[in-house]
Design a protein around this nucleic acid. Structure first.
Lengths: 334, 334
DNA sequence: CTGAAAGCGCTTACAG
DNA sequence: CTGAAAGCGCTTACAG
């Protein structure tokens, strides 16, 4: 059997409560008592039983993280950061994959997953705001992402519109006048795609350049879509001197297509992306992009969630955080 | 307060034990009793308290997964698969990142992480076999990877050597005679790099082609290393008609360098990789590679671990599993 | 087939 | 500052 607090108490010649006090850093313990207990702990190799602690205290010191799938590079990187930040505050992260499916999101919000965690970091990809509000239970939930902007929720997100505006402005400041935008549909609005497209249009407006719908190449957010978009523009004879990919994967696909057709980047066409994934740094030429502040997103969301769990954050309306972005100027658009 | 088993027992007019029997699918319960209990459960919205169950039973129904970092694409994909497979058998996966650091690996093996999980899937990146053996405790551990091959351990891995031999043989069967190999050092032996290099050499031998050290381009396993390796060979004037990257990232970097220099893939130079990451499928041209059987690795390792936990696997020596690989022939080397 | 009792290892009021 | 008691919500022998 494992060593218990009772064994420690007996070895130290004190009561159970005193051992508990030492373990929980209770303030008013005589140094001598504390030392006796600590010696007994060391001697017996005692380790607290976390399950028993959870049962009694009602806290697990685990945070739930709900996202679509860890195999998506952005989420893999995010999960990694969140786990590191949580660990510094003494919490673990338990991940649940929703596959962006409504039923899975709902069961992550309501099912046994909630019991195992003191609070939730939730990326709503399928559920509507009202559904989330009515099924989130009574433990804290912090939303991650931009799909639901609602005073009822705590939310940590990135500056999609401003960052897209800044990176587009950078292309224009470099003398580019015909910036193709890859990955957006005209009808996008509230999601990442819509907000980034809107930032692009504002930058054009700022520079007094008319928006040309011919420069907009819609499509999925994958590498092949970026390549296809550029191929489409070239084959249609649409002139352009820069490409803004709404994410890095698109931008890299676009750049690849330009290069194999003998078009020089950045001399003939400048390319910029969004996300600053690892691959952007390693591409050749390296990719100019915008870093959406994933470190800050991780720190603020974990901080906010733990403050809610520990009652440190006053129970007002939802707190909304937008992480600062950083423009990463690299070879593809100097 | 939450609804407890006691409330259910009272509502159904039976004892606590009977409710427990129903919940645990005990065989010999009268259908009428079972139905009464199930109705009470539904009516009260009862959900079992997992923490209490764990405390009493000593089982958490969680599996620990120790790997270096979820932001590494291969590990993100692996974690995702493992979680899905475990879920089908009623287990969750709790991830711990070791950063390939000895101290972190040791504390994952010995610390509180073990308490929270019924068994461990462990990727040993820094610890030696003996250290793992002496600190693995008494709950089951299944190793993932090829660094430790030892009868004391359960191990699930891939056929590094055979798969490398097969993909090289495919290049040779296509008429290539000068296959550059990217990412290996001559002195590599037991790790992935060494095993894959050895497979490459065996394929050459099978075909009666002498190994030419000039075709070996060492370097890290990243995109830029692949590009640099190809650049080095070209600049040195070493002739070659194919490239085998010891992983896909290397192969993609190599292919990129060939394309921007105007060398046609596969007409002038064929390219093949190893791993079959998502990116390989989306590259243009799509990348010929070897899929190391991640699905099988996930299923076998989870299956073996759970069998050990539930006592279904006899306590003999360690079980060693090598997943079957699949050659994925795509455009870069048809 | 079902019941009454014990106990997993902690923390939490309540005293003193 | 410290102690004795209760109890978190289950499962597990033990009876019958």
């Amino acid at each position: 059997m494992a060593v218990t607090m009772n064994d420690v108490a007996r070895a130290a010649g004190v009561s159970l409560k005193t051992v508990s006090n030492v373990l929980n850093d209770y303030e008013f313990i005589r140094p001598a008592t504390r030392q006796k207990v600590n010696e007994a702990i060391a001697e017996l190799g005692y380790e607290a039983n976390l399950t028993a602690r959870s049962l009694r205290s009602g806290k697990t010191r685990m945070l739930g993280l709900v996202l679509s799938d860890l195999s998506v590079p952005y989420y893999g990187e995010l999960a990694s950061k969140l786990m590191k930040v949580a660990s510094l505050r003494g919490y673990r992260v338990l991940v649940e994959q929703s596959d962006a499916n409504v039923d899975n999101e709902l069961s992550a919000l309501q099912g046994p997953f909630r019991q195992l965690t003191d609070g939730l970091l939730f990326t709503p990809l399928a559920m509507e705001a009202d559904a989330v509000a009515s099924s989130r239970g009574n433990k804290p939930v912090v939303l991650l992402g931009e799909y639901i902007l609602d005073a009822r929720f705590d939310l940590v997100t990135m500056k999609n519109e401003e960052a897209a505006r800044a990176v587009t402005a950078h292309l224009l400041a470099g003398g580019r006048r015909r910036v193709a935008v890859v990955g957006a549909h005209p009808e996008d609005s509230g999601g990442s795609a819509g907000l980034r497209l809107s930032g692009y249009r504002k930058a054009l407006e700022d520079a007094g350049i008319a928006f040309d719908p011919a420069l907009m190449a819609p499509g999925g957010w994958w590498r092949d879509a970026g390549a296809a978009a550029v191929a489409g523009l070239l084959d249609a004879g649409v002139p352009f001197d820069a490409v803004f990919g709404l994410n890095d994967t698109l931008a890299l696909g676009a750049m690849h297509e330009l290069l194999i057709r003998g078009i020089k980047v950045p001399q003939d066409v400048a390319v910029a992306g969004f996300d600053d994934i690892d691959e952007a740094r390693f591409a050749s030429p390296s990719l100019t992009t915008v870093s959406p502040g994933m470190d800050e997103i991780a720190e603020r969301s974990i901080g906010l969630l733990i403050d809610r769990i520990e009652g440190l954050q006053p129970e007002d309306d939802g707190v909304h955080v937008e992480a600062d972005f950083i423009l990463k100027i690299r070879e593809s658009a100097p």
